[in-house]
Write a protein that binds this DNA or RNA. Sequence first.
DNA 1: ATGACGGTACCTTACCGA
Length: 254
Amino acid sequence: MKLATWNVNSLSVRLPQLLDWLVSAQPDALVLQETKLTDDKFPAAELLAAGYHAVWHGQKTYNGVALLSRTPAVDVVRNIPALDDPQARVIAGTVDGVRVIGGYFPNGQAPDSEKFVYKMGWLTALEAWLQTELAAHTQLVLMGDFNIAPEDRDVYDPVAWAGQIHCTPEERAHFQALVGLGLVDAFRLFEQPPKSWSWWDYRNLAFRKNQGLRIDHVLVGEALKARVTACQIDKAPRKNERPSDHAPVWVELG
DNA sequence: ATGACGGTACCTTACCGA
């Protein structure tokens, strides 16, 4: 079973690339972030024609998430239940016995901003909800655009980024809080090439220079950890003519 | 460096992302 996450930065723009990637990568389930579509605009028919069921949670202009799967997801949840959040950032569903939680974590803008306060509160609410999800589901995966670079080795220039958004001690502490709940960073279960990133700025030829951050993650619970056989970032879609700024990340389960 | 690039929207300029 192959699970994946991809911030597509507008599903309407990236739909052709997504359809190509579904054919080449053959994931069994995929969570998307930044669909930037109201629910009535979601391309469910095109995806179904490509062999994927979908559930989604969108809004106008910003955010928006979806869960695609070969077999239909059940017990679908939109957003963090206890959090009254106007921003569409979470979709969860059970696929073939695996609880799949997809998240588009808040950006946070800057450590001294109101958006950072929102990010901290959102993360606290996520952790509380995940405790109950973990108690209810043995096999669980949390994946998406975390907007957190967990360690300095996840940053192309850790000195320049020290204390900056995505790299603050507060954000990294929240990442470790998720680890403390019993989740593990699937990417680090394997030896990986140094300078592995999942996001590159559109500006400054950042992708060509490989200046990026690893902020898209797949975190697995204990039972799934034992099943993970591989985890990789697929840079190929970032080489498309009009790419998302993020690359997909996938895990293979045995 | 209030920069850059790219997406969206009450669209020729602003806002947001990371």
